[in-house]
């Protein structure tokens, strides 16, 4: 009895086992899971682990690997070189300070300007420290430079926003700005002919728009680069943008320094006292209505 009962169970199991062996031996099972060619799998895997590196990764790598610091080196050598030549060949302009001085900058304007000037100088210095970090040895010095860069950026953003509102009306492009650009602001001649410019000339306007709107773009891309807030491929584009725009800003910063410190005698004092000499305004800002 017992043996017969056992056999009743064994038989179906045996049949199932044989069926399973036959099924496993069929070519069907060899083609199912796991036997996909590895090349296809790697193509699918590559898409995930290299992400969108193919978009801007290579471009960023090659430019950051040599182009950017060369551009900065060129800006830092060629721009001052040109102005040194200008200073030697054409020389500085000086104006009589005899007449009644004309009020040009209010106290808030001057305060904001010097806040922006200080923070922007720090931004340029610490930014260049990162760009040329390998020549300074890297490490804690450059790392603290990055922290200063962040704090200076916040100060600059606030003060530049204030200056933007104060100067916006005077900085709007005017038809005579084209004329100014054609004669290069009269800086190529030693004669003192009236220059077509209102409160600000076309050069100052370019610097204004570059520093405020460009500064805003720098702040936005810089924030993303600092906090990794954007997707990686966008970070690459932002790093490229941040570097090119920074090169332009450093160039114009040097121009601004030259103009205020050397090209026009006494120009620096106007941003301290708030007054320009009437002689200077009559020539350099001939269309300025008081």
């Amino acid at each position: 009895m017992n043996r017969k009962k056992n056999f009743r169970f064994i038989l179906p199991i045996g049949v199932l086992f044989l069926a399973a062996v036959a099924w496993a031996g069929s070519p069907q099972i060899l083609l199912s899971p796991g036997s996909e060619p590895s090349t296809a799998s790697f193509a699918a895997i590559n898409k995930i682990f290299t992400g969108d590196w193919q978009q801007y990764g290579q471009l960023f790598t090659s430019w950051q690997g040599g182009l950017f610091n060369r551009i900065f080196l060129l800006v830092l050598t060629i721009v001052p070189g040109i102005f040194l030549l200008h200073y030697i060949v054409i020389g500085a302009k000086s104006f009589s300070h005899a007449g009644t001085p004309i009020k040009f900058f209010g106290i808030l304007t001057r305060l904001l300007h010097w806040l922006a000037a200080l923070s922007f100088s720090l931004l340029v210095i610490t930014g260049l420290m990162v760009v040329f970090g390998k020549f300074l040895g890297g490490g804690a010095l450059i790392m603290s430079g990055r922290s200063v860069h962040l704090i200076a950026a916040i100060v600059f953003c606030l003060s530049a926003a204030g200056l933007f509102l104060i100067w916006l009306k005077d900085m709007l492009p005017m038809p005579h700005d084209v004329l100014w650009l054609f004669i290069m602001g009269g800086y190529l001649s030693k004669k003192k002919k009236p220059i077509p410019a209102g409160k600000f000339n076309a050069g100052q306007k370019i610097w204004f728009w570059l520093a405020t709107i460009g500064g805003g773009v720098m702040a936005w891309s810089g924030y993303n680069l600092y906090s990794f807030a954007a997707p990686t491929d966008q970070l690459r584009q932002m790093a490229i943008l941040h570097n090119f725009l920074a090169a332009a800003l450093v160039g114009f910063f040097i121009i601004h320094l030259y103009m205020s410190l050397f090209a026009i005698k006494g120009s620096l004092t106007s941003m301290i006292s708030g007054y320009k000499s009437s002689d200077e305004v009559a020539v350099m800002h001939s269309r300025y209505k008081i």
């Binding site: 430079g145 990055r146 990794f228 690459r236």
Partner: peptide, 14 residues
């Protein structure tokens, strides 16, 4: 020496 700028992260495909 590292300053944590994150450029390597942007350059690395992996």
């Amino acid at each position: 020496t590292c300053i944590g700028c994150g450029y390597c992260f942007m350059a690395c495909p992996f």
